[in-house]
Simulated assay, not measured.
Amino acid sequence: MINTIIFDMDGTVLNTLDDLTDSVNYVLREFGMPPRNIDEYRSFFGNGIRFAMECAVPEGTPASVIDEMLPVFKDCYNKHCLDKTGPYEGILPLMESLKEKGYKMAIVSNKINSAVVELNDKFFSEYVKVAVGERDGIKRKPDADMVFAALDELQSTCEESIYIGDSEVDLKTAQNAGLPCIAVLWGFRDKEYLMKKGAKYFAETPEDVERIILENT
C-alpha cells in the first residue's frame, strides 16, 4: 500500500532552470569564461552543482579553479534562487489532492540543503514537511541516502513509497532505494532518453502522476 511520495525538486516540482542558468553564467563571467545557453544547461543539471560546473567550464579547466568557483555560485544562487523559480503548472493542485487523500510527502534534491529548505518553505510547506538537500553526512543522489533520510523523518518504509523524478539520476536513485519511479516529461529530460535509461512509468501532466499512484495503491 503506497502512502508516501518522494519528489525530486528541479525539473519535477520546481522550474528552476532559469535561476540555475543565470547563477552559473554569473560565475563563468566572473572567472572570465564564456556563458552557456539554457538548452545546454538542461543536460548539465541533475547530478549536483559541481557536475554542472564541470560541464559548463571550458575543457581543461583545472579542478582547483572549479573549487574556487563553487562558493561564488552558492553565494549567488542563495541570493537569487527565487528570482524566476516557481512550481510547474498543476503541481500545487497535485500536492493538495495527495494531501487530502492522506499521502505523506517529501522532497529530495542534490541542490544545496539551504536552498532546498528555502524553496520548500516558500512553495510547498503546506504539503511537504520534509526536504532533504546536499549536506554533510548524506551522500548525494543517485545514492539512496537522501531517500532513506526522508523516509526516516516521515516514519515510512520503502515498501510504502514511490519516487517521482525527471532524470536518469532519479531513476537510479529510486532503483537504489528499492522504490518504483514515475518519470515526468516536463522536466530536464525527454521521454526517449528516459526510456533508454529504463523508465517504465511516464507522466505527461501532474494529473498523470496521481493516476499512476492510485493505480499502484
Rank of each mutant, 00 (worst) to 15 (best):
M195K: 14
E159Q: 13
M195V: 14
E168S: 13
G165R: 00
D152P: 02
V147T: 15
G178T: 10
S161E: 11
F148D: 11
G187M: 01
E160V: 06
L171D: 01
C181I: 13
G178E: 09
T173G: 08
Y163V: 09
L171A: 08
D166F: 08
A149I: 01
I162S: 02
E192I: 11
Y163K: 06
V147Y: 07
S167K: 04
A149G: 00
R189S: 00
F148K: 14
S161D: 11
C181L: 09
M195D: 05
D152F: 13
V169C: 05
R189G: 02
I164S: 05
Y163T: 06
K172F: 03
Y193K: 12
L171P: 06
T173I: 08
D166V: 09
D190Q: 10
Y193P: 00
Y193Q: 11
E153Y: 07
E192Q: 13
L179R: 03
L171W: 04
I164P: 00
D170G: 14
E160T: 14
E192C: 04
E168L: 00
T157Y: 05
L194V: 06
N176W: 01
A183M: 10
I164T: 08
C158E: 14
Q175L: 10
Y193M: 12
F188V: 12
M195R: 12
L151D: 04
G187V: 02
L151A: 07
T173E: 07
E168N: 12
S167Y: 04
W186Y: 01
L154Q: 05
V147A: 11
I162P: 03
K172N: 11
S156D: 09
P180S: 14
T157G: 15
C158T: 15
E159C: 00
L194N: 08
P180T: 09
L171G: 01
P180G: 13
S167A: 13
G165N: 02
Q155H: 14
D152W: 07
L171C: 10
P180R: 13
S161L: 10
G178N: 07
G178V: 11
V147G: 10
T157I: 04
I162H: 06
D170K: 11
A149S: 15
E159D: 15
A150I: 13
R189K: 10
